[in-house]
């Protein structure tokens, strides 16, 4: 699409139509982001001036706010965040693909199945967290069914598992939804050809279904990665704030902010932002070329047909 330089009157219309969006985004996203980044290099509060008077104000602090990044609490939160992301996204991909494969089949009650699988995605995370907190209570449903006495929601290794289970339950449907969308565009003659060639279901899945559904799956994983890296609600509701075993980077930032440690909170926020940006960039770089080539080959096909 080539952009023609607009005539004068048109650029005014453009400004009028687009500026409301720009204003809202500037207020809610751009300004807070820039302000937080600036804040991460400043320190505020009281200190003594040269004459020994107490002055209140804000001064440049260099990288002092970032000092906490190498400390144990931040490292622990970064480890938790990474662990949750890797484990939940992996589980959600496996479950999501399985769910999509089942949802594609025709059988009695399919509409009901689809609805029941997709509903968790629409439920408020805060409510889902409460629900699982009740199930995982010491004398709750989970322990009764399993016949165990596990303290799921107390600080400790089991809390990690509880958060992983709840998160997988909540978001596997999202992956399933995107994969289902990808599955539905695979032409049925591909499967018929495979059947004629005597392909086993196992081979069909690995050689046909998976490669063809790959673009949709990659998009789902990218969105899940960015979402999982900033997880906050579930650990907060299910286990609680300031719990070492499940404190994520977002949790740490929130905690510092509520203690009015704006400097460190902003510094950690900037660090988390960079972490997510790097992961997204690497992901797109490693696998994105594939997505693009896919689009290109489709375009070429379209041209050949025309």
């Amino acid at each position: 699409m080539r952009v023609r330089p607009a005539p004068r009157g048109q650029s005014w219309t453009a400004a009028a139509m687009l500026s409301p969006t720009m204003v809202v985004l500037a207020l809610v996203v751009l300004y807070p982001l820039v302000a937080a980044m600036r804040e991460s290099f400043y320190e505020s509060g009281q200190r003594l001036d040269a004459d020994g008077f107490v002055v209140e104000g804000e001064w440049f602090a260099g990288l002092a706010n970032y000092a906490g990044v190498v400390e144990q609490r931040f490292m622990n939160a970064a480890f938790n965040t990474t662990l949750f992301t890797v484990v939940t996204v992996a589980l959600e991909v496996v479950l999501g693909v399985a769910m999509a494969l089942v949802m594609r089949r025709a059988f009695r009650g399919r509409a009901f199945l689809r609805a029941s699988i997709l509903i968790p995605w629409a439920v408020p995370t805060a409510v889902a967290g409460l629900m699982w907190k009740w199930i995982f209570q010491a004398d709750g449903v989970a322990n009764t069914l399993l016949g165990t006495d596990i303290l799921w929601t107390a600080d400790g290794p089991w809390a990690k598992l509880a958060v992983v289970i709840a998160d997988t339950w909540k978001t596997a449907p999202f992956v399933g939804l995107l994969v289902l969308a990808g599955l539905q565009i695979i032409p049925s003659d591909v499967y018929e050809a495979a059947k004629v060639d005597g392909s086993t279901p196992w081979q069909t899945f690995w050689r046909i279904t998976l490669p063809l559904v790959r673009p949709a799956l990659l998009v789902a994983v990218l969105f899940r990665l960015m979402d999982a890296l900033r997880v906050f609600d579930l650990p907060y509701v299910l286990v609680g704030p300031r719990k070492q075993s499940v404190e994520t980077l977002s949790g740490l930032i929130w905690d510092e902010a509520t203690r009015v440690h704006y400097g460190p909170a902003s510094a950690y926020g900037t660090a988390l932002f960079c972490y997510i940006a790097v992961i997204a960039f690497v992901f797109v770089k490693l696998l994105g070329a594939d997505l693009l080539s896919d689009v290109r080959s489709r375009r070429r096909e379209a041209r050949d047909v025309a």
Binding site: L25, V29, P32, M226, R230, G269
Partner: peptide, 26 residues
């Protein structure tokens, strides 16, 4: 089609990537 159209759409999309917690203090 106007000057800055693509830039506008991409800018809008990028704001989607920022997560609330990093901006919470701001």
């Amino acid at each position: 089609r106007f000057r800055g159209r693509t830039a506008f759409l991409i800018l809008v999309l990028i704001t989607q990537m920022f997560q609330p917690t990093a901006m919470l203090v701001g």
